[in-house]
């Protein structure tokens, strides 16, 4: 795992929130978890990575954060489908940036959006997930990355 690769994902999340009404985003210290469910919020947008590296990268956020995010762009409809849309858009940004920034060895899938636990099975043993807490306003979201 290289720090640059982690930073690509992290900075694309930070950049995403930098374009919202409240650009300040706090990044927590990354820690390790064994499974996605150990670092997961209400809604999750997940992209899988293949090629020279295998793994996943996901953005997981609580409903309140998404609701606020929706309201902050002037939208009033905070139905579930809108929230799925919102988390999907963040994941899209992740995917897009990753495609652009990461080299030839990375193949980035289209985002996979779920409510609750992502149905993606965790990769083999010994591949821990880097869980990076993201705080926007008072809400805590999670960026998860596992590459090997």
């Amino acid at each position: 795992m290289k720090e640059e690769n982690l930073r690509v994902f992290l900075s694309s999340i930070v950049k995403y929130f930098a374009h919202t009404s409240d650009p300040s985003v706090n990044v927590g210290a990354p820690y390790l978890v064994d499974e996605i469910k150990d670092a997961c919020k209400d809604y999750t947008g997940l992209i899988s990575i293949s090629g020279d590296y295998n793994g996943v990268c996901y953005f997981s956020a609580p409903a309140v954060l998404l609701r606020h995010l929706i309201l902050s762009v002037g939208e009033t409809d905070t139905s579930e489908s809108m929230m799925l849309d919102a988390v999907g858009e963040v994941a899209n940004t992740l995917s897009g940036n990753a495609r652009k920034e990461l080299g030839k060895g990375f193949e980035i899938s289209a985002p996979h959006i779920t409510k609750g636990l992502p149905t993606m099975e965790t990769e083999g043993e010994g591949n821990r997930i880097y869980a990076i807490p993201i705080q926007w306003k008072s809400y805590k979201a999670m960026l998860g990355i596992s590459l090997h």
Binding site: M1, V27, Y130, P133
Partner: peptide, 18 residues
């Protein structure tokens, strides 16, 4: 100092666990 400064530390911790 922010959370992202800990990225390299987490990576090293991962290495220790491995």
């Amino acid at each position: 100092i922010g959370g992202d400064d800990f990225l390299s530390l987490t990576i090293l911790l991962d290495r220790l666990i491995s």
